[in-house]
Design a protein around this nucleic acid. Structure first.
Lengths: 181, 181
DNA sequence: AGATTATTCAAGAGTTTTGTTGAATAGTCA
DNA sequence: TGACTATTCAACAAAACTCTTGAATAATCT
């Protein structure tokens, strides 16, 4: 909650009110665990959001144009995808990097991924095996964290690329997404 | 447009404004044909609405309870479904009846259906072949026109039942839906 | 028990959305 | 061309939503 309010840059009270509304609408579920309350997006809601986005992509040509231009202007960040990635990661050929906040990583991430939030990346570059290609991801196609991460990694001499998709897409596609305790 | 404003019981100007907003959002398409403008829900939007409804049905148990109670209180209107209906209709064993407005019928209806808007039904009962079972439908599961139609038909001595689904569901399921010129 | 912390509640201000009214535009028919 | 009709525009009023502030509640720690 604390963390949600901060990420949305809203007051804590306002965030709480929003969550109450969403809870009354059964779109999120709350679980009280000691002093904290954990909120979870309800089953099926993520899928609807993805459907909505697909419709938007299908109908708004200018959206595609804008995002294309944006990505192009950020340098050639060719999207990488596919499940072969998992095998390559297990074999140590690539490092899969989750650059979202630690709490988001804990809530669900790719099995082989390690967590370094973007704002800590520059200071923790030494944790990455040198000379190994890095594949960074964040929340999905419209999240810019991984784009920035790739920039930082390339500046530091790494071969780096961005994974276009994120946890919501993987869950929808049946790709395993694990949570940390 | 005229007809949309009336059905929504909104002023014509207000209806026009809503449609302009929806058009700017690419959710509806407009086509000017002489003095009138024809509006059409854009491709894919109907599907999103169905997805949204499915989510609502899945998550809101009270919705199911309310609708069950409502239908039960309206008498035993067992829902009838399936494509065998089309065959039976072609064979003349049942009359399929569309009780929506004439314009809605024209925009798309079941191939074998004939149109009698609900408010004209009592006066046009004689058009129906006597002694033949009638299956009435309207806009879909949450539309009450067909429920009322069944009541009227039974009062008049017909064997009548309600088709639970409507054109949006059929289109999503690939059932043929035809339009009148 | 008392202090501390995370979350929720309640009242009010600011902003956005929705609706109304009356006039303007554009196409049709005589 | 001029009268007519369907639709849209523009300005304003009403309603709903969002956010802030300050206090209340509930669980934890010392």
């Amino acid at each position: 909650m604390e963390s949600l309010a901060e990420q949305a840059s809203l007051s804590v009270a306002n965030t709480s009110q929003h969550l109450q509304v969403l809870r009354a609408a059964r779109l999120v579920e709350a679980e009280k665990r000691g002093l904290f309350v954990t909120y979870r997006v309800a089953e099926g809601v993520e899928g609807l959001i993805l459907s909505l986005r697909r419709l938007a992509e299908a109908r708004l040509e200018e959206l595609e144009q804008i995002t294309q231009a944006f990505w192009a202007s950020r340098g050639a960040l060719e999207p990488v995808d596919g499940e072969a990635l998992l095998a390559r990661a297990r074999a140590g050929e690539v490092t899969v990097l989750d650059v979202r906040d630690a709490l988001e990583y804990a809530a669900g991430h790719l099995p082989t991924a390690r967590s370094i939030p973007l704002h800590e990346l520059r200071a923790r570059l030494h944790e990455l095996p040198p000379g190994v290609e890095v594949i960074a991801y964040c929340r999905g196609p419209y999240c810019v964290l991984a784009i920035e991460a790739v920039r930082v990694l390339r500046e530091a001499g790494f071969t780096a690329a961005r994974l276009h998709s994120g946890p919501p897409e993987w869950r929808a596609a049946g790709v395993p997404v694990v949570a940390s305790p």
